[in-house]
Design a protein around this nucleic acid. Structure first.
Length: 556
DNA sequence: GAAGTCACG
DNA sequence: ACGTACGTGACTTCA
């Protein structure tokens, strides 16, 4: 830490210069602890989670009310970027000094803030504090008029501290297991590569879609009219190749090569590099202000997209392990939360009843739309019903459904029609959302989180259609995000307030992952299940499934 | 840095 | 006739 800027009056600010030496810095910070840890003084910042984590490294545990201008603006307009310099220009009509002017473009010549003259540091940092302070009162009013202040104060701000704790906790990885996984992957990848080059009768860069396209569609001429990407290149995307795989062994080898290559480069080899040498654990960073629907995102590394769908992919999950022999990993996930939300919001009797009776919703849907008894539903019928159930949430078309299933467009269209006839209030609900959006320009979640849809009344059917689908999807995906955020806050409150030894580690949209202390396991299951299921009350019950194991795969 | 691809919910 | 399912982040190639 190089310095800290403070401002508590528009246009004024103060800059605290900190020495390079850690112990000396602690001494300089000593008189400020009373401020940072004061339970009543509100601390305003832009991306406070970052500042909270830096201060933690200097043994300061920030307390008291928070105001985060980045998150405030995320609620004011979730689709925009939230960089402070842009916000200053947009809302204060003021262009702050850019960081690049001060330290240069990124690269080897970039200077550190420590190397900048103290007077320049002061000017820059104080301007930052001043702007942030001014933005806070502006966004406060904006949130009041959009009625999102309670979402901000009761959910988003408390979540900042919860995420800080989760990120600092991190999760343990089994590195030697990943190393051996990488070895077998290399062998299989080399094998596939060999057979692909033999079939192609030449070697080329398999990782280059451009080169691959030329081989498949110009040299081997696999089909008459290959699909092209928007830049005119041959498309070699998964759905295109899958279609060809059954007739051409080289194509299925390419698909296998791609999937193994992906596993190795994105996960197996990359994850160990992300281990923090100080803690020996992997610490993702959650972004609370990127996903326009209210979801979190995860990066450096992304722990929200760890493989699970394929057997080879599942091996990666085995590498996520408990912190020590006294712990197990516990995973708790909401069962069908988005469909439960659409059922509750639409009040459709058929769907609500199915959930109240705790039925297998895809099977129940199949029985209804294919008009067969529950016990006679085939695998294929259930699978198609499942695809429609998910598709409805996104606003699927007959074309889209036919792409995702083995149905043709006519059959897909008929299935969608039958679906709406089965769940009539779903269609009414979807129409209501679109009508509301047309009148008000936005839609909202159960906690009043808004998403503005500027093209909802557009003359252009394509962009209007996109906003209509967003108008249906955003309240559902966003309400699910609201609910799990409420649960996380309640759970973390218990874990810290009651001094549990178990820790909450990860969030994956509808799932929470814990380091569960073996002695607390039974109690933890009960507490987490109850807090998640009762985080928010809907017209249908929320159901949480819990799993425990010696790795993340086993916990499912 | 854009484009293409693919991992997840 | 047209375009065609929501939300993300990471890796590789290539201009």
């Amino acid at each position: 830490m190089v310095g800290i800027a403070f401002s508590w009056e528009k246009g004024k600010g103060y800059y605290l210069v900190l020495p390079e030496d850690y112990q000396q810095t602690l001494a300089v910070l000593q008189p400020f602890i009373a401020f940072f840890e004061h339970p009543e003084i509100e601390k305003v910042g832009h991306n406070l989670k970052y500042d909270l984590k830096v201060l933690r490294n200097y043994t300061i545990e920030v307390k008291g009310p928070l105001f985060d201008t980045m998150i405030a603006h995320y609620l004011v307009n979730p689709d925009m970027r939230h960089n402070m310099d842009v916000l200053a220009e947009t809302y204060l009509n003021y262009s702050p000094q850019s960081i690049t002017e001060l330290i240069g473009k990124k690269g080897k010549d970039q200077r550190t803030m420590r190397e900048v003259a103290e007077s320049d540091q002061t000017e820059y940092a104080v301007e930052d504090a001043d702007i942030t302070f001014q933005l806070s009162s502006y966004f406060q009013k904006e949130m009041e008029s959009a009625d999102t202040l309670s979402l901000y104060q009761q959910v988003e701000l408390p979540l900042v501290s919860v995420l800080t704790a989760m990120e600092c906790e991190g999760i343990r990885l089994d590195v030697s297991f990943l190393k051996s996984l990488s070895k077998t992957l290399t062998e299989d990848i080399n094998q596939l590569e060999k057979s692909i080059f033999t079939a192609a009768e030449e070697t080329f860069n398999l990782a280059s879609p451009k080169q691959l396209g030329l081989i498949l569609f110009e040299k081997l001429k696999l089909i008459e009219k290959p699909k092209k990407t928007k830049t005119g290149q041959y498309s070699t995307a998964e759905d295109v190749l899958s279609y060809l795989a059954k007739d051409h062994p080289i194509v299925s080898d390419i698909l296998d090569w791609r999937s193994l290559q992906k596993l190795q480069s994105t996960y197996v080899d990359a994850l160990p590099k992300e281990i923090n040498p100080k803690t020996g654990r992997v610490h993702t960073i959650y972004n609370q202000a990127v996903a326009a629907t209210g979801r979190l995102s995860s990066n450096n590394p992304n722990l929200q997209n760890i493989p699970i769908r394929t057997v080879r992919g599942q091996q990666v999950r085995k590498a996520f392990i408990p912190r020590d022999e006294n712990h197990l990993l516990m995973a708790a996930d909401y069962s069908q939360i988005e469909l439960r939300i659409i059922a509750a919001l639409s009040q459709d009797e058929g769907m609500v009843t199915a959930f109240q009776n705790n039925e297998d919703i895809h099977k129940a849907t199949a029985a209804k739309v294919f008009n067969v008894p529950l016990e006679e539903v085939t695998r294929e019928q259930r699978s198609n019903a499942k695809t429609v159930n998910f598709g409805i949430v996104y606003g699927v078309s007959a074309f889209g459904l036919s792409q995702q299933t083995d149905l043709n467009r006519t059959e897909a269209k008929a299935l969608i029609e039958t679906y709406y006839a089965t769940y009539p209030k779903l269609r009414a609900y979807i129409q209501d959302q679109i009508d509301f959006a047309r009148d008000h320009g936005y839609v909202s979640t159960v906690l009043g989180r808004r998403r503005y849809l500027k093209d909802i009344n557009s003359q252009n059917a394509v962009v209007r259609g996109a906003d209509e689908r967003n108008g249906v999807n955003a309240p559902i995906q966003g309400s699910a995000a609201d609910i799990i955020k409420l649960a996380m806050i309640a759970i973390q409150e218990k874990l810290t307030g009651e001094q549990w030894r178990s820790k909450m580690l990860l969030q994956v949209h509808d799932e929470l992952v814990f380091d569960a202390h073996k002695e607390e396991l039974d109690a933890l299951k009960i507490m987490v299940k109850s807090e998640m299921e009762n985080a928010f009350s809907l017209a249908v019950p929320l159901v949480v499934d819990i799993g425990v194991g010696k790795n993340w795969l086993e916990a499912h």
